[in-house]
Design a binder for these strands. Sequence first.
DNA 1: TCAAGGATTACCT
DNA 2: GGTAATCCTTGAA
Length: 212
Amino acid sequence: MVAAARGLLGALLIRDDGRSVRTGRIVEVEAYGGREDLASHARSRRTARNATMFSPSGQAYVYGVYGMHTCLNVVCGPAGRPAAVLVRAVEPLVGVAAMREARIARGLATRRLDRAAPAAAADRIAHLPVARLASGPGNVGAAFSVEREDDGLDVLDPASLLRLEPRPPAESPPAVAIGPRIGVGFAGPEWASARWRFWIPGSPALSGRRGA
DNA sequence: TCAAGGATTACCT
DNA sequence: GGTAATCCTTGAA
């Protein structure tokens, strides 16, 4: 599972909705395990929400948090053994304009931009540096239009509208930095400190807290 | 049936 | 650095 997480670094995330193609390079991920991992959604029994984590490798596990964000994971355990890798940050390569549109659309959908000054807020996204469009799990979900309905998609299927393209074997593996996962303090010190976050050091697209 | 809280983000002081 | 926004899943009553 940890190996699968590291293997995803440098892979391409591709969203092809028929009108436009969005592509980015995965630069930050976190690994989540099964019952023993108290930070994982699979820490308790199998439920409707985490069912996809028990699926065979290669499926998308999508869930919502805080009522407004969707997070994209890739299931990486054998069937029946829950494990997944959370995609925390992506470096945009192709379809930057579509990513901006998606960010703005998602902002409006969650009514974040409605309140104060929607035009100004949309304008801020329009001028956001490219590297920040998909930096952070919620932003990856927004920039690539990941919906709850995408839960269970086979992202290894080349025909899938949301898919992964592995790093070419010929390409040398990127440098990898390792550190504890973010936002899992509720799991207790042991699991919150587990060094299951992996990122490509130096990437401008890393999520907020970049320290090791 | 219901209360609690979250694998986050961005704005506020 | 603190905290609001906001929906839905979970676990307990």
